[in-house]
Computed example of a mutant assay.
Amino acid sequence: MRDDPSADLLDWYDTHARVMPWRVAPADRKAGQRPDPYRIWLSEVMLQQTTVAAVRDYFHRFTARWPTVQDLASAADADVMGEWAGLGYYARARNLLKCARAIVTDYDGVFPDTRDGLIALPGIGPYTAAAIAAIAFDEQATVVDGNVERVMARLHDVHSPLPAAKGELTVLATALTPAQRAGDYAQAVMDLGATICTPKSPACGNCPWRDPCKSRIAGTVAELPKKTPKKKTPTRFGIAYVARRTDGAWLLETRPDKGLLGGMLGWPMSDWNDAPDPAPPLDANWQDLGVEARHTFTHFHLRLQIMTANVGDTTPNRGDFIAAPDFRPSDLPTVMRKVFDLAHATLRHD
């Protein structure tokens, strides 16, 4: 092992880099191929609080339908929200459109090539700006996600619990970030955490940082990183109204831009709290389906009572009827799709 840990990690990455649809392989990068900033940006936004496995298919669909930032900027909001459905954290999709349009309008379709320039764009925070700057432009920017925090905590045997330890771990990560091949290094340390230095049963014998790892020497690998215990997740309740007209059309509404599921298509709903107030979108013979749709958001569990109705040619006070051929259940966010899956069999029009 050399005195430069980043060089050891890059040697490991040259052989063991994961294959990603948005990534330029180390050999290709050494040969002069540059990453596409649009694809790096899109992947990083999708990967926020979401696994690589969940993102792959969405990334392929987005880049096939909108291969450039100009294409995405000109897309209809509803089309983008529909393609995003099921990926969660829907504010990301709204900010994705805002950012694409800002790049086209204010930057002539060219991404800023520095962390400071990128962080000024909608929906790009410190982590995402650093990741794009490093991976797309090789800026010596420090990229710290959950994988990197775990690697740094073990490498340096840091016992301060997260999230309070984030600052300390970032300083340690910064000290290791090399001036050369910063993009490959950023991806290498994340790959190390994802494939070797895993939360459970890390493969320490295969780790390129095995020798200098202080927690391995101390026998504390399994304890790290330490985390402050989470508070109990509260439960909220709501009512979903699923109505279908005699011609097969479904009653749906677009949720307000702000708030959870903002801008997404969904069923008319009550509020979500301990005792929701009924809010039917039209007068009908509403029937309780007798089963709940359950979903967990970041900060709370949601349990939805499902009310269904077959209706005639009537005007709702909320939402619009969408003809059956124009309605794609796949355009619904996950919680709304759960409601549909439970309700549609009782409202089928053959």
Rank of each mutant, 00 (worst) to 15 (best):
V335G: 02
I196M: 08
L192I: 06
E292W: 12
D138E: 14
A78N: 05
Y38K: 02
P202N: 07
A25W: 02
V189M: 13
D247G: 06
V311M: 03
A27C: 04
S215H: 00
D28A: 02
Q287M: 13
V52A: 15
L47M: 08
Y127N: 06
T128W: 03
A240H: 03
T128P: 08
G125C: 11
A284G: 08
V80I: 08
P333E: 10
K258E: 15
S330L: 15
P280W: 08
P276A: 04
G32R: 06
N206I: 05
V291E: 15
A309R: 11
P268C: 14
W250C: 02
T254C: 13
S215Y: 03
L47Y: 09
T63G: 00
L162H: 03
L302I: 09
F300L: 15
A182I: 13
A141M: 01
G117R: 10
A120F: 03
N317Q: 13
I239A: 06
P112N: 07
G312K: 10
R294Q: 15
H349C: 05
L47N: 03
R181C: 08
T105H: 14
C197A: 11
F237N: 09
S215M: 01
T246R: 15
L72K: 00
V158A: 00
Y90L: 02
L155N: 02
R255C: 03
G259M: 10
V144L: 04
Y90E: 01
D288V: 11
D28E: 12
A345E: 12
Y58N: 13
A243F: 09
P316E: 05
A120H: 04
P163D: 12
D288T: 13
L342K: 14
R18L: 14
G109R: 02
R92M: 03
D4W: 04
T105G: 04
F62V: 10
I40M: 00
G248Y: 14
S74C: 11
G263C: 12
E223L: 14
V144D: 00
W250V: 11
W267D: 01
D77Y: 08
I322G: 02
P161Y: 07
V55W: 00
A153W: 14
A131P: 12
T105R: 15
W209M: 15
T68A: 01
R61P: 07
D271I: 05
V291W: 03
S270K: 11
I124K: 12
C197W: 01
F321Y: 14
N206M: 07
D71I: 02
A240E: 04
K214Y: 02
L9G: 07
A54R: 15
L260V: 11
P21T: 15
Q33G: 07
L155I: 07
T314G: 09
G290Q: 13
P163F: 08
T233Q: 12
D211I: 10
I306M: 05
A130H: 09
T195H: 04
C207M: 10
M20H: 06
L260D: 09
L162M: 11
Y185Q: 00
L260K: 10
D191F: 13
C204F: 09
G266S: 09
Q187D: 05
